[in-house]
């Protein structure tokens, strides 16, 4: 699977039975649709909103269709690319941003997701 931003092959990283794909060049993170549903469950998906942005459109690393730009999280301040069929792409630091947003808004999240985010994408600094 190739990075949607730099087109180089990515590698997978597993922690506590959660797996993401990482780009060795830009540090972007791909969450597979299945992985997202493992973490977020179906009953309470993240808040999303279509985003107006001039950031380049990117192809989905799995199906190659152009991904949507979305703002996600409780304050809708993290901009991600999403393929409705395959998954979600976070640029470098965006996963941490989402983690911070979830913490600031005291959104209770699945313990497994919390463990994974704290382990691999820890939120640094105070509120």
């Amino acid at each position: 699977m190739k990075c949607p931003a730099c087109r180089v092959p990515m590698y997978a990283v597993e922690f506590k039975q959660v797996e993401v794909d990482l780009c060795p060049d830009c540090g972007g993170v791909w969450f597979d649709r299945g992985e997202l549903s493992l973490l977020l469950g179906v009953e309470r998906p993240l808040e999303t909103e279509p985003a107006a942005t001039d950031e380049d459109a990117r192809p989905c690393p799995l199906c190659d269709k152009t991904m949507d730009k979305l703002n996600i999280g409780p304050s809708l301040r993290v901009l991600v690319d999403r393929c409705p069929d395959c998954g979600m792409w976070f640029d470098r630091r965006e996963v941490e941003d989402l983690g911070r947003d979830l913490r600031d808004n005291e959104v209770g999240i699945d313990p497994a997701l919390a463990e994974f985010l704290n382990g691999v994408f820890p939120v640094k600094g105070d509120r």
């Binding site: 990515m10 590698y11 997978a12 922690f15 797996e19 382990g119």
Partner: peptide, 9 residues
């Protein structure tokens, strides 16, 4: 504790 999985390409 993480596991990295590196593709052949």
């Amino acid at each position: 504790g993480t596991v990295l999985k590196i593709p052949p390409d």
